[in-house]
């Protein structure tokens, strides 16, 4: 995973901001800060962790199979490429 950039900030809208941890998925970074995220498969095929990406860019480490809308991402199999802002519905 080409995911070593340090110092990226993840903002969860109306909740908190936290640092992205290099070499972790977005979901793992959120969990490391005790943010409760609903998940099942953690491999991108169930879509349980689906959230909206409001700002910034992410890259997928595996091709997500679950349905994601144009403005949505699956935190379980992606990592940020820039500072990002996300929102859980």
């Amino acid at each position: 995973m080409a995911n070593t950039k340090a110092g990226l900030v993840i903002s969860v809208k109306e909740v908190t901001s936290l640092p992205h941890q290099p070499d972790k998925t977005l979901l793992q970074s959120l969990e490391a800060q005790n943010i409760e995220v609903h998940y099942h498969c953690r491999e991108g095929y169930c879509g349980a962790c689906r959230c909206r990406l409001l700002k910034g860019q992410v890259e997928y480490s595996v091709d997500p199979l679950a349905y994601v809308d144009d403005d949505e991402i699956l935190p379980c199999c992606c990592h940020p490429l820039s500072d990002i802002e996300i929102e859980f519905s």
């Binding site: 409760e36 609903h38 998940y39 099942h40 498969c41 953690r42 491999e43 095929y45 169930c46």
Partner: peptide
């Protein structure tokens, strides 16, 4: 709003 059975996730995780 929150998952009343959080341990379910462990069983549904493909890992």
């Amino acid at each position: 709003k929150s998952n009343p059975l959080p341990w379910m996730n462990n069983y549904l995780n493909s890992d």
